[in-house]
Design a protein around this nucleic acid. Structure first.
Lengths: 155, 155
DNA sequence: TTTTTAGTTCTGCAAATACAGAACTAAGTA
DNA sequence: TACTTAGTTCTGTATTTGCAGAACTAAAAA
């Protein structure tokens, strides 16, 4: 498996971005590779060679991505290699989960509000607003996603 | 400055949550302290003592939070202490920025799509969908926030 | 039966992080 | 002028993270 210099550079740029999203360098570059590679299905050795990473690092990263269901693999009769592929269609689900996670602290904030002294009115109102906003975001997102799914299935 | 055991436990729980959001343990606990403390304005020494952290750690964390504009400070005449306070009202802005950041990779994904071989139709369509979805989220979010601001100012 | 191949696991190291403690600065105070 | 106080910066270190390389397992091929 070979890859152009342009694509290699793009993989690095994508890598840096995904690092910023909390992925490790290796994970990030593997995702990048899936995004630019001519093949959908890529073997461990291919990843290892095109990205110049150790086999163990690739294996560990891939297994993390498998757990997170960002990647899956297929097999072929009479071939014991695993052909890894990006679950890119699932990506929207991950965004949903990501947003869910960012408002999951709502419960704790409510607890904080209950525990607060009642005299700090401005602060308490601001905190209350924050919690309400989280509720709002949460409710609106469900709509956002269902709307999108409809919109998507039409075109 | 003193604080109940209940609140201390809550600070730790909030701390763990904010660590999950990418903050360092110290940053996370300082934010937690601001959320439950009876005073709005808290000095460096107060933070240091109630959280049992070193002065340097508090100072560094506070300065990071100042840079990120999650915290600000006020001063008082004839008192050279700095009174730090949470910029909790600004919190919605941070959520906006957070969401913006999560779709800022759109440009790179477009680049990836352009560079891709044209024969992997399913994948390319999925990638295109992903990009479109990011556009959609971005546009809808602006609406989401302005709607909320209206809704908020009414009540 | 040895050899090859795919993948996993283990071991160790190098770099990055996060923090404590001490030294230091600057501006008042006794 | 020495002393205190608030805050900053520096130095060292413990911990964590991320990865390479080697050892290992399992299954098929020679």
């Amino acid at each position: 498996m070979q890859i152009t210099e342009t694509k290699k550079r793009l993989i690095e740029k994508l890598g840096v971005f995904f690092e910023g999203q909390g992925k490790t360098p290796v994970e990030a570059r593997i995702i990048g590779l899936f995004l630019v590679a001519d093949q959908i299905e890529i073997t461990l050795v291919d990843i290892q060679q095109t990205l110049s990473i150790s086999k163990s690092a690739v294996n560990n990263a891939i297994n993390v991505l498998l757990l997170r269901e960002e990647v899956e693999y297929v097999t072929k009769p009479g071939d014991r290699k695993k052909y890894y592929k990006s679950k890119i269609e699932q990506w929207m689900t991950h965004v949903e989960q990501h947003i869910e996670k960012s408002v999951e602290g709502k419960v704790l904030l409510k607890e904080a509000l209950e525990q607060r002294i009642k005299t700090t009115k401005t602060f308490n109102t601001a905190l209350k607003d924050m919690i309400d906003f989280m509720d709002y975001v949460q409710s609106q997102h469900k709509e956002l996603f269902t709307k999108w799914k409809k919109l998507r299935n039409k075109s």
